[in-house]
Amino acid sequence: MRPQHLLHQPLTTQKCTLGCPILDRCLGGAIPCNSITELVAESGSGKTQLCLQLSLSSQLPASHGGLSASSLYLHTEFPFPFRRLHQLSTNFRSSHPCNDHDPCDNIFVQGVHTVDQLLDIMPRIESFIKNSKSRLPIRLIVIDSIAALFRSDFENTPGDLKKRSSLFFKISGKLKAMAMGFGLAVVVTNQVVDLVAPDEGINGLKVGNLGCLYSSGRRVCPALGLAWANCVNSRLFLAKDDEFVHQDNQLVNGDGGDFVSRRTRRWIHVVFAPHLPKLSCEFEITRKGIFGVER
């Protein structure tokens, strides 16, 4: 066994761009390699959008902040959003015209239905990465979402919870070993649960910089509990909030009624990360993808 010399490797961990300079700058280059980054959010907050965009932007060369790599997308929620991926890839091709291949060719998609299936395909994933004949090596694994696998199969009894957390560590250990061995960026998405009785016992436990996570005006906390929180290296939280804007539309419509428009504002927060302080950045989801909003 030999120690690694910290000076013999680049002085910053390689990061994979999210495809938006504002978000990249905010997150210190975006998603780090060699470790697991978790995206936590309620449904409809943009987790999948961000993952799809990431699997496209990872194909960019290092000069553009990418990994010049293909990606493996494990989805546990069905169906896989092919149409949205196609839409994003068309836009990706037009903004990066030097790429003559269809970027969708570099995204390998695999559906996963159960935890056991995930554990079964782990060794196959490893040999797939090792022996991949694809044009670009695989440097990104996305699991969207990890929570969906665990939330149905286990009961809320001490025995089941113990079995569940041992599986968390097993999966996370294997993912981290692969991340380290091949220099992969690993992104997993997680759902949230509502906090019904806040600040009672371990329910109100503060994990990371944000005391409480609010999304759509409700207090939430990441699913899968404390054990899983120990399994990821960085945790990002996507929050959304609906804002009702009263507009006086007299001039436009001439009917004299107040028109109430709903606008969804979205933020990305760093809950914890070894290389980032507490910070947040607003973003919006458009037809072309996810983009940070400069304040």
Binding site: P3, Q9, T12, P32, M180, H275
Partner: peptide
């Protein structure tokens, strides 16, 4: 110092 990292959270840029 010897740093034994079992979790992969050591970031060299942060150490720097």
């Amino acid at each position: 110092a010897i740093y034994i990292d079992t979790e992969g959270s050591f970031m060299v840029e942060r150490a720097l």
